[in-house]
Every structure is written in C-alpha cells, then in structure tokens.
Write a protein that binds this DNA or RNA. Structure first.
Length: 166
DNA sequence: GCGACAG
DNA sequence: ATCTTGTCGC
C-alpha cells in the first residue's frame, strides 16, 4: 500500500492544447488503480472546449470508456458573456459557432469556472454535476481533494531517491 | 510582427 | 503551475 503512488516524472512539457500528453498517462494510470470503478470522473482541464475539440477530459473519457467532465480554472478557447455574480449562475461558452461548454459561477462574486463535456455527457448535466459537488469554495470538492493529495505526495517525496523517478 | 495561451 | 505581498471576511 505504498507504490500505488509511485512517483512519475513528467517527460513532456506543458504546452497549451497538449496537456493530455503531459498528464494523461498519470491520470489513466491512477484511475486504473481504483478498487471501485467510478461512474464519472471530474478532470482538472478542458473537455471539448479545446482547439481540436478534444481536451484532456475527452482523452480520459474515450480511452477508458467512462463519462468525464472537464472543469478548468481558466479559459483555453471560446467566447462568452459573463455569468451573473451569484453562485449557480452560468452562461454558455461558444467556439467556432458551436456551444462547447459553460462558464459557471461556483461561488458568489468569485471568478467562474470553465466547464465542458469530456465524454458521454452533455453541457447542462456537466454544469449540474459540478455545482452539486461544490460547496463553500470555488473549486469542486473532488478537485480540492485531488489537489491536496497530490501536493502532499509531491512534498513528501521531494529530494528522495531519484530511482523512484520512473 | 503582436497577443493569447487548460496546468 | 509556482511565488509572493497585502487585504478581507468568517
């Protein structure tokens, strides 16, 4: 009950539009280790609101054949009208004339989130689910938990045997 | 050439 | 993403 979090060194740089090539494997690998198959996975990044209409959430969903929602803290592509200031308010995100996602206010008077379908789900359901797992903070609880865990593991491993840098 | 640009 | 100073509200 240790190596399930074996350290992985990113071998691909962060390039807007190519996030899946940097973090895709680690995510798929992690999901593969779950003992309970998830009904749906929230991904920190874009779904179809992407230059090629296929962000990291789309990659994960298609490869694993499960529903996924892209939930990003900032915009990659698309135009939109600012949503109302209150929690729950949202507007559609458009790109090249098509609806590709939503700009969602997950907390009153705070910068909105960019939600877009990854796989096997539509825009409205994606917004509904993101809002359902958000309370008190701007970021949905599943992503907050993931951030806390990844940060702790990264700090705990820092400076340790480079041999773990598989 | 200049500005935009998930994490 | 990371770093960092100052301010705000519970």
């Amino acid at each position: 009950m240790e190596d399930v979090f074996a350290r992985k060194k990113a071998r691909f740089p962060y390039i807007p539009g190519l996030l899946a090539f940097r973090e895709g494997h680690a995510i798929i690998s992690a999901i593969g280790k779950l003992t309970v198959a998830p009904d749906l996975v929230l991904i920190d990044g874009q779904g179809i609101a992407h230059p090629e209409g296929f962000g990291i959430a789309s990659h994960i969903g298609v490869i694993l054949g499960i529903p996924t929602i892209g939930c990003a803290k900032s915009r990659l592509v698309g135009e939109y009208e600012a949503p109302g200031s209150m929690k729950g308010n949202w507007t559609y995100l458009y790109h090249r004339g098509a609806k590709v996602g939503a700009v969602v206010r997950t907390r009153s008077f705070v910068k909105p989130l960019f939600v877009s379908p990854g796989h096997l789900i539509d825009i409205e359901s994606s917004v509904e689910i993101v809002l359902e797992c958000t309370s008190g903070f701007r970021i949905p609880e599943p992503l907050r938990a993931a951030d806390r865990l990844s940060r702790k593991l990264r700090n705990d491993y820092s400076g340790q045997s480079p041999a773990l840098d598989k």
